[in-house]
Amino acid sequence: MIQMKDISKTYENGTIALERVNVEIGKGEFVFIVGASGAGKSTFIRLLFREVLPSSGELIVNGHDVVNMDNSEVPYLRRGLGVVFQDYRLLPDKTVAENVAFAMQVIEAPRRRMQHSVNAVLDIVGLRDKYKNFPSQLSGGEQQRVAIARAIVNNPALVIADEPTGNLDPETSWEIMDIFKRINASGTTIVMATHDKHIVDTMRKRVIAIEGGKIVRDEAQGVYGYEN
């Protein structure tokens, strides 16, 4: 699903975010990316959906050559991915259903499929009954569930999540993780950057630890390994 070969990223101001990173993530894996703030986690995540380009190295994501692709191909890379952010990034003037359908609308999906898929993913995240609500009428956890529904509505092979529980209380965080577990169980690869020690230590999934732009640890059933 993801092949990173000697990936380095140096920003224009000279900051080295990643240095010769080599990682392979297979189909259906659940991977936590951990590390202190500024370690390079976010850059790692942003490279996957080509929000930033590496300075050197090779990167294949879901069959797309991310480094050498033309700008016009980027939308097609992203259609195969679902991205979830810490701050949800929902459209405030659209309802729950509209926010989710939006992801299908922009890729010009057939309308009859849209209604069916939106209902199906709202069932998965448990928000079917709130489809008419606006984001401002929802709690943080509910908003994040809408964001997850939006990320998975196009059946992506890979879901990338950047601190999805960062703004949530422990109980709600577990609800969110439960949804991610179910998505993963259906065969979708999940790559998640997180600071949540408790979640990482409890779930015992693959853990990739980044420090100073380098991978310092890659364990199949790892733990967080840092003190919060």
Binding site: Y76, V106, N154
Partner: peptide
């Protein structure tokens, strides 16, 4: 601009 950014994340063409 936020809407545009979201559109790009979910794979809208330019």
């Amino acid at each position: 601009r936020k809407e545009i950014a979201i559109m790009k994340y979910v794979g809208a063409t330019d």
